[in-house]
């Protein structure tokens, strides 16, 4: 995977990517873990670290990275497996979303997933779709039955919006 990345990226871009990835993870674990708006909207901004990895990354490696990210977040939420399951799922469906929603121009060309490159419309659609899938999986597993269907649905909708807005805002401020 590293060889595959290095052929298309400079070292600086890789360190940048790793740094941002860790930053999202720390932000999630240390700060956003305690942030809940109106008892319904949770913010799982760490999925940005997964979503913003370059599209040409090796898929198996990508799945494994997602799995371990999920396990780390689970460790801090005391929900072993839930975040991992949701994160692995979005990692698996990401190429599909990329193909249908973002329509990347040609696989050979180097592509960076960011607000600047994709434009607000595409980036927002891409983020909200994957956030929706992630949160739906997560909250459904967490509820583990249909008895709390309405609160779970509200939670999914509110959290998806919250997470998406956070990711887009962070993109706005880290443009350079």
């Amino acid at each position: 995977m590293i060889r595959c990345l290095i052929t298309t990226m400079t070292l600086r871009e890789i360190t940048n990517l790793v740094f941002l990835f860790l930053l999202y993870l720390l932000l999630q674990i240390l700060i956003l873990r305690n942030v809940v708006l109106f008892d319904y909207a949770f913010c799982f901004v760490y999925i940005a670290g997964i979503l913003l990895l370059p599209p040409q990354i090796n898929r198996s490696a990508f799945l494994l990275i997602s799995f371990f990210t999920g396990v780390i977040v689970d460790t801090f939420y005391n929900t072993l497996g839930m975040h991992a399951a949701a994160t692995v799922l979005i990692a698996y469906v990401r190429p599909l979303i990329l193909r249908t929603q973002v329509d990347l121009p040609g696989q050979e060309q180097r592509q960076v997933l960011s607000l600047n490159e994709l434009g607000f419309n595409k980036f927002f659609r891409y983020t909200i779709l994957l956030a929706l899938i992630h949160h739906t999986t997560l909250f459904t597993i967490e509820a583990s039955s249909l008895t709390l269907l309405v609160p779970t649905l509200i939670r999914i909708a509110a959290s998806t919006l919250f997470t998406t807005i956070c990711i887009v805002l962070i993109q706005f401020f880290t443009r350079n």
Partner: peptide
């Protein structure tokens, strides 16, 4: 690989009270 990872995840979720996970993968 995807299926394998998901199976592992759900194994974790279901067995979340077993000793190994309870002693390591939590706060």
């Amino acid at each position: 690989l995807f299926l394998l990872l998901e199976v592992i995840c759900f194994y974790f979720i279901i067995n979340t009270n077993n000793y190994w996970s309870a002693s390591f993968f939590n706060t």
